[in-house]
Design a binder for these strands. Structure first.
Lengths: 342, 342
DNA sequence: GCCCAGGGTGTAAACGTTTACAGGGCAGTG
DNA sequence: CACTGCCCTGTAAACGTTTACACCCTGGGC
C-alpha cells in the first residue's frame, strides 16, 4: 500500500475541474450542484471531477451560504450519564438533518457559558443548545443578546424569550414519594445536590411540598445535601444513617442513589426490605444496579431530541415565537422500592 | 429586558469597523490582530469595534487561514462509558489548545467510518481521531488516501502508516488471570464480545494464551460469547452457569461484567466468595458496583489524551514519521476478586 | 424573414477575512 | 540636500464557493 499523499499541490478546486472540463467555473459549479446543464457539459464536468477527486470545500461553501451545518451542545460535564443520554439523542436527530454536533464541556463555569453564548457571534456554528446547571443574571443578559439561535434545557424565568425545554422535577419528586408512601413507607429521607443549582432547588421544593401533601413527618433531619456525584451520595448517606433511620431514601440523582445503595449494602441493610431507594433521571445506571434501581425518569433522551428539533425548527423559521416544551416526569419502578411484607 | 435583536442588518464586519474608524480594512484588521499600528489608529479602531460590537467571523477566517480549529472524534457509540471517558479526556486536551471537538457516532457502521475519513477532504475539521471497532480493507484504503491528519485508536496492521494509539489488552487479560490464579481460582471463565471485532479477538487470544501459560484446564465450555453490552453480559452469564460452574469469571468489558454480576447475585451466588469477577476498561461502572468490581484498566483517559495530543502535534509537523504509542494495561483490584479462605 | 422566448453558458461579484506589496512621510546619515 | 531606511498606511489579491446578470444561440410563431 503505497503512500501517495498529494504533498505539495493543493487540493483540487472547482477551478481545477472547470479548466480540465473546458468550461467555466459557473458551469462546473452548476453541474456539481445538480442544476441545469447540457448533457455534454454535465458529462465532461463529472468526468473531470471524478478524475481529480474533487471534493467541495465546506468552509468556502459556508462562507458563501452563511451556514455551517454545525450545532453546538454545551453541558457541564460530558461524562455525566444524564448529559450523555441527551447528547446521544441530540446527535441522532441532528445527524439525520445533515448537521454535525460540536460539544463543549463548560465545567459548571458560568463565565464559560456566557463566553459560549457570545461566541455564537463568530458564527462557527448555526446554533447552540445550552444546558446550564446554574442560571445567573449574566446568563440572562447573554441570552438576550445572543447572536444566533439558542435553546436552553432547564428551567428559566418566565419572561425570558428563548426556546426552552424543561421537565417538572418538582412533581417528579412527588411521584416518587407517593409511590413510597403507597408501598408502606413513612420516614422518607432526601439526599439532594446543592441548593443553589436549578435542579437542586426544584427537587428540594418538590420534596417539601410532597411531604406536606402526603402528611409525612416534617423532620428536617431526614434531609442531607451533598453534590450530585457518586462519592457524595455515599458520604451523604453515611451522615444520614449516623443520625436517623429512615425507611426509604429518595435521591436527587441516580449517581447519588447508586452511592447510597453502596453505603446501605455495605452496612448490611437490605434494599428494599429495610430501606427502599428511589433515584432520579433513570439513567443506565439504574438498570445496571443490583437490586435494580427505581428512578424517576425526566426524559433525558426526549429532552435532548426536543431541544435539537426546536433548534432545527428555529433555523428554518427565525421569527416564530419562542417555544416552551415541558417533558413530564415518569416513575419507573424497579426492585429497589418494591413493596414488602413487614 | 427588551428584545433588541439586530433583525435585518447584517452583523458588523471589519469593513464596518474600518469605515467608522476612518481607516482602511487592512489597518483595522491589523489592530484587531495585535499587529503594529500607531497609537492613534489603534485607539480609533478599538473604539469603533467596541461601539458596533464587532466579532470576527470564524468561517471567513478559516477560509483564509486554511484551518478550522476543530477536530473530529468518531466512535461507535457516544454512550459507551469507555468512549465517554476518552471523549472527555480529548475534549480537555483539545480545548486547552484552542480547538473544538466535533463528535460523530458511527454506530459501528464501517461505511460511515469510511465516509468520515473521505469527508476530511471537505476540510470542515483539521483532523480526526477514529476509534474503529472493526477494521476492514475499506478502512485501510480510506486511511491511506485520507486528505487530512488522522489518529487511529486501536490496533492496526503493522504496515499502516498512521498515527496510532493502542493498548495491550492481550496481556491485560493475562494480568487478570494471573491475579485470579494467585488468589486461588482455577476454573476461570471468559465472557467475551464478538470475535470479529478488534477488541474481541485480542481478548480471546489473550485468554487462551494466559490459560496455557498458567496451566489452567483447557475447557472451552468456560468460554461464552455475547455482545459488549450489559444485557448481553447478563444473558451470556445465564448460559454459562447453566452449563458449567467456574470459580471465577473474566469479562471482556465492564458492561458485560456488571451484567454478569447481576446474574450471579440474582442466583444467590456470593461474589467473590463463590465466584470472583474481573472486568475490563475500569470505567466508572466498576467503582459504582457493589461489590466494587476489579477491572483491567486500559487507560481510556490516557489513550484519549494521547490521541488528541498526537493529532495536535501532527498539525504542527505534518512530516514527522507516524507515531505509535502503546498504553500498558493495569490491573485494579477491588472487592469482586479479593482472595477468600475456603 | 422578423421577433421573442428560453435554455445554456461565461463573467464577475459576493461572502469576510488576512496579508503581500507598494507608496508616503519622516528622521538620520553622508 | 540627496539618499537610505523605517514605520505606518492603503490598495488589492487571495482563500473556494455560489449565483445574479448579461450574453449568445436556437427554434417556433406570426
Amino acid at each position: 500500500m503505497a503512500r501517495k499523499r498529494l504533498q505539495g499541490n493543493r487540493a483540487p478546486t472547482v477551478h481545477t475541474v472547470a479548466k480540465l472540463a473546458g468550461v467555466s467555473i459557473a458551469s462546473a459549479s452548476r453541474v456539481l450542484n445538480g442544476l441545469g446543464a447540457s448533457p455534454e457539459t454535465e458529462q465532461r464536468v463529472r468526468a473531470a471531477a471524478a478524475k481529480v477527486g474533487y471534493v467541495p470545500n465546506a468552509v468556502a461553501r459556508s462562507l458563501r451560504s452563511r451556514r455551517t451545518d454545525m450545532l453546538a451542545l454545551a453541558v457541564e460535564d460530558i461524562g455525566n450519564p444524564v448529559y450523555v443520554a441527551m447528547m446521544r439523542a441530540m446527535e441522532t436527530v441532528v445527524r439525520r438533518a445533515g448537521y454535525r454536533l460540536v460539544v463543549h464541556a463548560t465545567g459548571a463555569d458560568p463565565d464559560g457559558e456566557v463566553e459560549l453564548l457570545d461566541g455564537l457571534a463568530k458564527r462557527y456554528v448555526d446554533g447552540l443548545v445550552l444546558v446550564p446547571i446554574r442560571v445567573t443574571d449574566a446568563h440572562l443578559e447573554a441570552l438576550s443578546r445572543a447572536a444566533g439561535p439558542v435553546v436552553v434545557v432547564g428551567a428559566l424565568p418566565d419572561d425570558v424569550e428563548v426556546d426552552n425545554v424543561r421537565t417538572d422535577s418538582h412533581s417528579g419528586v412527588g411521584l416518587a414519594l407517593s409511590h413510597l408512601v403507597e408501598s408502606g413507607r413513612r420516614r422518607i429521607a432526601l439526599i439532594n445536590g446543592p441548593l443553589d443549582t436549578v435542579p437542586g432547588a426544584a427537587r428540594q421544593a418538590g420534596y417539601l411540598a410532597a411531604r406536606d401533601r402526603l402528611g409525612l413527618p416534617a423532620d428536617d433531619a431526614l434531609i442531607e445535601i451533598g453534590d450530585f456525584r457518586y462519592e457524595d451520595g455515599r458520604r451523604a448517606t453515611e451522615r444520614l444513617l449516623d443520625r436517623v433511620r429512615p425507611d426509604a431514601i429518595f435521591c436527587a440523582n441516580d449517581l447519588i442513589a447508586v452511592g447510597a445503595l453502596h453505603t446501605l449494602l455495605s452496612r448490611g441493610i437490605r434494599v428494599p426490605e429495610e430501606i427502599a431507594l428511589v433515584g432520579m433521571d433513570d439513567t443506565d445506571l439504574a438498570r445496571m444496579s443490583f437490586p435494580q434501581l427505581s428512578s424517576v425518569s425526566l426524559g433525558s433522551e426526549e429532552r435532548g431530541q426536543t431541544a435539537a428539533q426546536l433548534l432545527l425548527d428555529r433555523l428554518v423559521d427565525p421569527d416564530r415565537p419562542p417555544a416552551r416544551v415541558t417533558v413530564p416526569p415518569r416513575l419507573v419502578i424497579r426492585a429497589s422500592s418494591r413493596a414488602v411484607r413487614p
